[in-house]
């Protein structure tokens, strides 16, 4: 019970968002990741043009993630009180940035279709 296990974490996340929403979000994240793998396999290469746009969009995703967390938790940047707070904030930023970059890459690939000239 007191032990730290995956089951405990899953139980807590299910309670946090509700079982349906939590697994829907997991499914969405998995679907986007699979779509990314799909377009990589389909195109047989990482398109540097799409990757550049994805990279440029990273700050947008990072800032959006930080903003979302602050709003949802009645917090502001002035509440950061120690190193761990900065690390958590960077973690949120990084997660938002990477997630959004993958999403942008996938959306470009799916919308523009397979590159004709590569």
């Amino acid at each position: 019970m007191e032990e730290f296990s995956l089951m405990t974490i899953l139980a807590v996340f299910e309670e946090m968002f509700g079982r349906g929403l939590f697994w829907a979000m997991v499914a969405l994240a998995v679907a986007i990741t699979l779509a990314w793998v799909y377009v990589l396999v389909r195109d047989r290469s990482l398109s540097m043009r799409k990757f550049l746009l994805a990279q440029l969009s990273m700050p947008v995703g990072g800032v959006a993630a930080v903003w979302f967390v602050l709003v949802m938790t009645n917090s502001s940047l002035r509440d950061l009180g120690g190193p761990i707070d900065g690390i958590v904030l960077l973690g949120v930023f990084a997660a938002g940035a990477v997630g959004f970059a993958i999403l942008v890459y996938v959306v470009q690939s799916l919308l523009r279709g397979r590159p004709a000239d590569s």
């Binding site: 807590v12 996340f13 299910e14 309670e15 946090m16 949802m72 938790t73 009645n74 917090s75 509440d79 950061l80 009180g81 120690g82 761990i84 707070d85 958590v88 904030l89």
Partner: peptide, 16 residues
């Protein structure tokens, strides 16, 4: 130490 992460635990994770 007065920390944001401790607030997050109370605000977000505790009820779950």
């Amino acid at each position: 130490e007065e920390l944001w992460i401790s607030w997050l635990m109370k605000e977000v994770a505790l009820k779950a």
